[in-house]
Design a protein around this nucleic acid. Structure first.
Length: 280
DNA sequence: AACGAGACCTGGCAGC
DNA sequence: TGCTGCCAGGTCTCGT
């Protein structure tokens, strides 16, 4: 579910409520943590996270699809997997199925609780400090939302890659943040056929792709992300980018540019959608 | 080294 | 109604 735009929407919403700014002169402090199971996809580093109680939340950042809570030099890293969500909850509120973790923050005199829910438990939490960087963050490539200039320099690297361009876009160690939906969408907008070997993408098309990716992601962020089935922001509102999909999940519907039916293909066991006339 | 397949989970839906 | 099988936004691990 959550690709870069969905994670960024969550980050912006949490930031609005929890991070110090002129209208909120005091930083939120971690007040309590509750774990309802010892593991998600991986064991939760419960002890290290528990030790952060009392520390102030200095910032919330994001790299690719990873959300990073920054506590005085220490970090809690959250990945939402396919079905993970963070939402604000009330202390009295009954727990829902698959609520796994609750962080309580003290923001001036108020308490704010955020709850991590994840039916499939493909998501996970990690901990990092100055002694030990997160193994997950260490592997990531450039953030896909960054200026296109830096990404254009990756053109040299793709000269060695025979993998299909769509599979390369999904490789988080190459470019961090693009997932299965936005890979199909970005290739459509750049007129590149998804099976094209990366080293056969022209300089011109590559530059175009580098320009389209951040534009596409930014547009989606502004619309609150894409909500399929269960994604929602921390306020439980759904995003609406799914209403604008050019090709994703539109097999046999007509291309919005040339009217030819959108085609479907499995690539690396992932659904892939494209227009055979527009994408060469 | 690079790539692909399988694994990890649950829930929703189509088809019978 | 209820069972079965298939599908899903991700990514780690293992085999070739």
């Amino acid at each position: 579910m959550p690709e870069l735009p969905e994670v960024e929407v969550v980050r912006l919403q949490l930031e609005q409520h929890l991070i110090q700014k002129p209208t909120q002169p005091e930083a939120a402090r971690l007040h309590s943590v509750q774990f309802f199971r010892p593991d998600l996809r991986f064991p939760i580093p419960q002890k290290q996270i528990q030790n952060l109680v009392g520390k102030s939340l200095a910032g919330l950042s994001r790299h690719g699809k990873y959300l990073i809570f920054e506590f005085e030099g220490k970090k809690v890293i959250s990945h939402l997997g396919m079905t993970g969500t963070w939402r604000f909850v009330e202390p009295s509120e009954p727990r829902k199925t698959h609520d796994h973790v609750i962080f309580g923050f003290q923001v001036r005199h108020k308490k704010k609780l955020i709850c991590y829910n994840d039916p499939r438990r493909f998501g996970f939490l990690d901990y990092a400090d100055t002694q030990k960087e997160s193994q997950f963050l260490a592997k990531l490539g450039l953030d896909a939302l960054l200026s296109s200039q830096k990404k254009k320099q990756l053109f040299l690297q793709i000269q060695n890659k025979e993998a299909a361009i769509k599979n390369l876009l999904l490789d988080q160690s190459f470019l961090a943040g693009v997932g299965n939906i936005y890979a199909s969408e970005a290739l459509f907008l750049s007129r590149i056929h998804p099976t094209t070997p990366a080293n056969q993408v022209s300089r011109q098309k590559w530059d175009r792709l580098c320009n389209e990716i951040p534009k596409l992601l930014q547009t989606s962020i502004e619309l609150g992300g894409s909500s399929i089935d269960d994604f929602h922001g921390v306020d439980e509102k759904s995003g609406s980018y799914q209403d604008r999909f050019w090709v994703y999940d539109r097999e046999n519907e007509s291309c919005k540019v040339c009217r030819k039916p959108i085609e479907f293909l499995k690539m690396g066991q992932r659904s892939t959608y494209y227009c055979a006339r527009c994408q060469k």
